[in-house]
Design a protein around this nucleic acid. Structure first.
Lengths: 326, 326
DNA sequence: TATCATGGTGAAAGCGATTTCAATGACAGG
DNA sequence: CCTGTCATTGAAATCGCTTTCACCATGATA
């Protein structure tokens, strides 16, 4: 492997000069020219490992996601990758498979491994998380949850759910049921359920607590919960879900129980999933700018890394949402 | 940051001893004990950057994907990540957004950047690709395409498509149309189309060349192509697609054109998408073990990296498939 | 003429590990 | 007692780059 010294010798300068040429320091025009030629000739590329050791920066950003094979997360990741690529960074991806402890594990790993910053696509935020985030040696930005004192990009799930509940209240004849996710996921669990309830209430409807079930983000969990709901109470005519994926499962349960294609909107979700939109004509759901949240979070992070000393770009950013098909 | 020297001093040994302790070289029991204590006390972790510089290995694997936010790719990625994590490696993810030149760009970037190996989730394989793969300084495994002389994990798209075409031939009344993707994607484009045609032919049916369209992997492209097909020839009663995603688009076009929920299987796809399965009751499609292909490819790669000198685990591996709903 | 910035330059000191190498002491066999 | 083996050890050399530092011209300023 050709190293800097070789280039320097070929160009008849010191390696310091080559380094300066590469990094934009003082260098005279003719030497710059000679160095340029020498680099082309040798096909030299600098070792990012040596550079990293010396400068302490790796141009690597750690990205922690709960589950890469889900529409929302993979869109967020696409957004993150876009910005990273454009700004000369690379993405170190860690997939925790929905295990909160693996999240902490990776946070730890990234501290001691070579990343300049971290993007955490967050689900559950425990005290341990808060502590880990607090004591993080590199800048970190959260996506999806609002955490006091931490930089984050998120959506207002409570408000969105409220609006959805409010809008839906009048249009449902029978009883409304709800399939949520764990409250430990503040945004997708707690906020969406409470917001939805509040929205219904504000419009004069109610959500019977006995008609609330908990799924686990998967299509199948939505299907099973819905089946149970439908068998428990035949008057259930609408099932609101905390995610479009679970809504798809619920839809299938409806189809099996009451026949397909009755043309009635029987479920609602969150996320505006493209398949669901195409195949059902569109259930009531909330559109979030997932890709945008990845983009914004990453820009925020890189701004503090690349930015002038002191002026931290880290802050919290709430993105808008949009009700669909209501 | 506490470094090895600090630990060594605290334990009253040389840093060489600490290094040996960490890497399993000769070390006496009592010194090992002292070093262990010192490490715990100081919370020392070794700098992977210095280690990388010295050893030349980064424990990083570059993963190049065409589009992270697609079901198949994100499943493959999940499989890759699983193995990587288990075996002590990390994933450097590069998303090319379906731009073949960006693929080459990343191949290049990874060579000169710190990865020990590369997994390429391949779409188009041009001569330039072949050359780049050939001259790659680190081991590389392809997923999804069969390339002579390169290590790859792939599915037999021709055979699968043949079976699908053969099985479908008898069950369609009207005309059959096809929405494919570019032939430059040998597997998903060329092989699937040719295999499907051959399968139909073998069962005595034909695919009218004028009823073949080309989409671009997206739901919307499938929708548009299908709309056009349906308007061009009202006798078209079945549209086979090269991907489930496009099939979803085609299904929507059918719904708009001929009314929803007629209960007839009108499209087929590839990939066995979960949403499609749940929402339609299951279109004819081919199930591929996407996650498995990620797992297998990564194991193959790491085996050659970790394995004893010489015994290369690199080879080609053809995975099975399964016809669904036919 | 004396004094200063100022653009340019290379030698050399690290960054924090791993690894070679020669040296040591202990111990078995002859 | 001498010698060979073998487990252990630390000093020192790298790995390939960045960055400080001392120093030189050169031209401007006083």
């Amino acid at each position: 492997m050709v190293k800097m010294k070789d280039v320097a010798e070929l160009a008849g300068v010191s390696s310091a000069a080559v380094s300066r040429y590469l990094n934009g320091g003082y260098i005279s025009a003719d030497k710059a020219e000679r160095i340029k030629k020498a680099i082309e000739l040798t096909g030299y590329v600098r070792s990012s490992q040596a550079r990293a050791l010396r400068t302490g920066s790796t141009k690597l950003i750690g990205v922690i996601v709960p589950k890469i094979n889900s529409e929302s997360v993979s869109r967020i990741t696409a957004g993150i990758g876009q910005v990273l690529g454009r700004r000369g960074y690379q993405m170190l991806l860690a997939n925790t498979d929905n295990a909160a402890d693996r999240e902490l594990e990776y946070l730890d790993l990234f501290q001691n491994h070579p990343v300049d910053g971290i993007v955490l696509v967050a689900t559950m935020i425990t005290d341990e998380h808060r502590r880990a985030i607090e004591s993080c040696r590199v800048p970190i930005v959260l996506i999806g949850q609002h955490v006091e004192g931490a930089a984050c990009v998120y959506h207002d799930d409570y408000e969105a759910a409220f609006e959805l509940g409010h809008a839906l209240a009048g249009r449902v004849d029978g009883k409304i049921a709800y399939i949520g996710v764990t409250d430990e996921d503040r945004a997708a669990g707690f906020d969406r359920r409470r917001g939805f309830e509040a929205g219904l209430r504000a419009a004069g409807a109610v959500l019977d607590p006995s008609l609330i079930r908990q799924g686990s983000f998967t299509l199948d969990s939505g299907y099973r919960a819905a089946r149970e709901l439908l068998s428990v109470d035949p008057d259930v005519s609408f099932i609101a879900c905390a995610t479009d994926t679970m809504a798809a499962g619920a839809l299938r349960a409806f189809d099996e129980a009451r026949g397909m294609g009755e043309g009635v909107r029987r479920v609602s979700g969150f996320g505006d999933n493209a398949f669901l939109r195409a195949l059902t004509g569109g259930i009531p759901t909330v559109h979030y700018g997932y890709l945008t949240s990845g983009v914004e979070a990453t820009n925020m992070l890189l701004n503090t890394l690349d930015g002038e000393e002191g002026e931290s770009g880290l802050k919290t950013l709430k993105l808008g949402h949009q009700l669909m098909n209501v």
